[in-house]
């Protein structure tokens, strides 16, 4: 800082005559020094009051008009800008809503589609189950229908089976207590005629150990004497190879 008394620097600064390093230093010093700030303010007040002792003089009327127009126009511009902003915001919000709506709709449709497919699959399963039960009931109505018990053997001692059999109408196997077939294996049902097993179908069991299989009638064949269920490789085999899990023979 200079050695000048601050009243002098404040006065020179206030009349706009401070220059060079003194100006730089004083301007850096000013915000940190309330005394210097007050001195500058005091000098500015003095100058303002001195200046205003000059006789007033009306500026050109055009200046006033132009200024007032400018102020009013600027407000209009501002309000128009606000309107544009609002409009743009609304458009953006609308687009966002449409987008969100579409997205929700697409998601909803996808979910609905999935539900419909699930429903259709469930319906199909129920229909299949129902038709099996109906056939079983029809078979049971037939006086010539026999119910053959199958008992568990080997690794499936807890298993039980019932074969509803009609020589003319075919048959229906209902099995319980069977463990799920190991990977790569499946259960195979055999019809025994003349002491020889004939493959009549492959089936799986559900998590509760229940399984079933419908057997078409084959009147051309010899009379069936009994039924056997074995564990066979996936895809089956022409003749039993695996262990017997259920059998109607004693």
């Amino acid at each position: 800082m200079s050695h000048e008394p601050f009243e002098t620097l404040a006065a020179i600064y206030a009349v706009g005559a401070l220059d060079g390093d003194e100006l730089t230093q004083f301007e850096a010093h000013l915000p940190t020094c309330p005394a210097c700030e007050a001195a500058v303010r005091d000098a500015e007040e003095t100058l303002a009051r001195a200046v205003l002792t000059a006789p007033p003089q009306a500026p050109p009327a055009a200046a006033r008009e132009a200024l007032m127009r400018r102020v009013t126009e600027r407000r209009d511009v501002r309000s128009r800008a606000w309107l544009r902003w609002a409009a743009a915001t609304l458009v953006a919000a609308g687009a966002a809503a449409v987008f969100a709506g579409t997205w929700v709709a697409v998601r909803y449709e996808a979910r609905l589609g999935q539900m419909a497919r699930e429903m259709a699959a469930a319906k199909e399963a129920l229909r299949e189950e129902l038709s099996l039960d109906r056939r079983a009931v029809e078979l049971l109505r037939d006086p010539t229908t026999r119910v053959v018990d199958l008992r568990g053997r080997d690794g499936a001692a807890a298993a039980n089976g019932r074969m509803i059999w009609n020589a003319a109408g075919g048959g229906h196997l209902l099995a319980t207590g069977l463990p799920p077939a190991p990977p790569g294996k499946t259960y195979a049902l055999w019809a025994i005629a003349r002491g020889t097993p004939r493959p009549v179908g492959l089936f799986a069991v559900d998590a509760n150990g229940r399984g079933g299989h419908r057997v078409a009638a084959d009147t051309a064949r010899d009379a069936v004497q009994g039924f056997v269920v074995t564990l066979e490789p996936e895809g089956g085999a022409p003749a039993p190879t695996g262990p017997i899990v259920l059998t109607s023979t004693r």
């Binding site: 000048e4 009243e7 002098t8 006065a11 020179i12 206030a14 009349v15 005559a17 005091d42 000098a43 003095t46 100058l47 009051r49 001195a50 002792t53």
Partner: peptide, 17 residues
């Protein structure tokens, strides 16, 4: 001298106003 004159001028103006 210029500095002093400015300071004196401001002081005098202050009295006047």
């Amino acid at each position: 001298t210029v500095k002093t004159r400015i300071r004196l001028a401001l002081a005098r103006l202050r009295e006047l106003v």
